[in-house]
Design a protein around this nucleic acid. Structure first.
Lengths: 104, 104
DNA sequence: ATTATATATCGGTTTTTTTCGATATGTCAA
DNA sequence: TTGACATATCGAAAAAAACCGATATATAAT
């Protein structure tokens, strides 16, 4: 765990929003999973395009944000066909919260 | 509480170090309180010069760091004579940790 | 009053981050 | 296999942050 990378990832409003939207994907991304056959349900995952639309930033920027958040450990991704689904890495986030509580 | 400012303040190694050093001031700043008459003990506070020496950055940089961390709510300061003592704002840090656990 | 010391602020340079459009890559559908 | 779409990566411009030395301010000591 690299706290500095994590805090950097969190110090941008759009990225922070994305992380929080992904706490309740159905609520914030009503179209969620439209592409997916039910049997491959990517629980809690949302594709880049849907996130981009809501974030109102360019495709390349959002793609970059997401991979930055993934490198930091906040998100994980699954590719299904031409789509990449991102979801929160709850285990890592939990660890970070614990780190915050005990080490900060 | 402005989470983005807090995360920005935390996304720098020196600033993160300072915050952690201040968890145990006596341990990390042996000279601590040398200037102070005992009756004005600034519990847990360390003066800018001592922090600067340990942080190995310029005086202006450290001063800037400290005021940035104070604006974010992580630190509080007390001036005693020509010295400014900084210490952790434990209450605020606790709130931030809770915010992290519930909102992030 | 003058000098010394601690900290804050100013002004500017360097480095990093943000952000985009263009392009590359990978996948699906016809 | 060609064309359409989703995402990733590249390269660059603009904005922000890092960081310093110089200077200002405030207090203390002589």
């Amino acid at each position: 765990m690299k706290p500095i990378d994590i805090f950097k990832a969190l110090s941008n409003e759009t990225r922070l929003n994305i992380l929080q939207w992904l706490k309740e994907p159905e609520k914030h991304f009503p179209k969620q999973g439209a592409h997916l056959p039910k049997e491959v349900s990517i629980k809690g995952g949302v594709c880049v395009g849907d996130i981009q639309e809501k974030a109102k930033a360019s495709q390349s920027t959002v793609s970059h944000y997401l991979s930055m958040m993934q490198s930091a450990g906040l998100l994980e991704s699954v590719r299904y066909g031409q789509w990449t689904y991102y979801r929160r890495n709850e285990e890592a986030i939990q660890q970070i919260a614990d780190y915050f509580k005990t080490e900060i």
